[in-house]
Simulated scan of single mutants.
Amino acid sequence: MPSAIPTADAPAADSAWPRVAQQEQEGRQWTVATGRWTALGMSSLPAWQALSKSLAAAPPADDRAWDLRPIEQLDHIGAQLLWEHWRHEWPATLEMEAQHKAVLDQVAQYTVATPDEPPKTLADRIRTFSHNGPRAMVVARDFIGLIGQLAIDVGTLIRAPHRAPWRDFSGHLYQFGATALHITALVGLLIGVVLAYLISQQLRNYGAEAFVVNILGLSLVRELGPVLAAVLIAGRSGSAITAQIGVMRVTEELDAMRVMGIPHGFRLVMPRVLALAIAMPLISLWTSMAALLGGMLAADAALDISPAYFLSALPRAVPIANLWLAMAKSAVFGILIALIGCYFGMKVKPNTESLGRGTTSSVVTSITAVILVDALFAVLFKGIGFRG
């Protein structure tokens, strides 16, 4: 029977290391285990590296023969290592001492093989892809979930209006609407002046000064007014929404609300969305009026078109359908800006760097979404608001 005896020139410290060696006896390959197969014996890094190397050179096979008698000590750690190496199957031929067999029998009895996982279904693959797929898929999943939660909260508001946070709603309505009137009016006025002066330079060359009312009216009421107001609100109120909710994340107020059972969607998201959905059409109308005022003054100065003629020609040049279309898409702009601000605010991590990054992403995403939705409205309603 094979034996494994350390050579005389082997270091004394190495002789106790657990290891296996290949020996041939009577035309058969034997794997002989020597050393101390204990947690202490495998605790040093050189001992573990030597054992791993020797085990890698002795892969299990159906006709393998193992001799464990030279093992000095064997505990449950060593027995578990051998059992795992044997892939939870006893070797075809095994020689060992009675005390080693008792330890191995106990390990084999209480070690349960991990069952094979069932094959993934199509639903499992879609769910895994949505959770771990590209960033766009994750964002779309979370944003759709936020919209669904908003719909549920609005239903709750309709069923039980007395439970609604009306004080928060009125505060957000004042903050998003009334406090933004001065900046939107100033920017709208300047845009109207600049646009009127640029248009007047071209119309004068063709003697079509009277058409400045048509161009200014359609461009400002239908497109520039709502988009300009939405961009200003996205940079002003959208960033404020993200910063407010993000600070609540940093100061752990969101966690405290969850502990107290206060839903985030009903108390944080819904009041802001409703407030901005109502304020945005009014701000858009206010901005368009300021831009038309600036354009009217510039047309009077550059083209000698009196304000009386401008005001009388404006209703004929711009059908009322343009105003309703502008207010409708402004409401959509407001809902999008509020949802995007709340989404990035909820995603802020409890550190100041994430707060700044989330606020920047909120503004950029809101402006991009506003432009995309405006282009969609332009395509869908291209036949509305124009005189034949």
Rank of each mutant, 00 (worst) to 15 (best):
A4W: 05
I5N: 09
P11W: 02
D14H: 09
A16P: 04
R19F: 00
R19W: 01
Q22K: 10
Q23P: 00
E24W: 09
E26W: 07
R28P: 07
Q29R: 06
T38F: 05
L40C: 03
L40M: 08
G41W: 03
S44Q: 14
Q49W: 06
Q49C: 14
S52H: 08
A61L: 09
D62W: 08
A65C: 15
W66G: 10
D75M: 12
H76N: 15
A79T: 13
Q80G: 05
W83K: 11
E84T: 14
W86Y: 11
R87N: 08
P91F: 03
A92F: 03
M96H: 02
M96P: 09
A102Y: 06
V103F: 03
L104V: 01
Q106V: 14
P115D: 09
R125K: 13
I126Y: 13
F129A: 07
R135W: 14
V139T: 07
R141Y: 00
L146K: 01
G148H: 04
G148M: 13
V154S: 09
T156V: 04
L157Y: 10
R163K: 14
A164H: 11
P165I: 04
G171L: 01
F176M: 07
V193T: 07
Y197S: 10
L203D: 12
R204S: 13
N205T: 07
G207C: 08
N214E: 05
L216C: 06
V221A: 11
E223R: 11
P226I: 11
P226K: 12
S237T: 12
A243K: 00
V247A: 04
R249T: 05
R249L: 04
V250G: 02
T251W: 14
E253C: 05
D255A: 08
R258W: 03
G261H: 06
G265E: 13
R272F: 04
A279S: 13
S284L: 00
L285F: 15
L285P: 10
W286D: 06
A291T: 03
G294K: 03
L297N: 05
L303S: 02
I305E: 01
A326G: 14
A331G: 14
F333H: 02
F333T: 02
K347L: 10
K349S: 12
L355P: 06
T359E: 03
T360L: 09
S362C: 14
V364G: 07
I367W: 05
V373L: 12
V379M: 08
V379H: 06
L380F: 14
K382L: 13
G385D: 13
G388S: 15
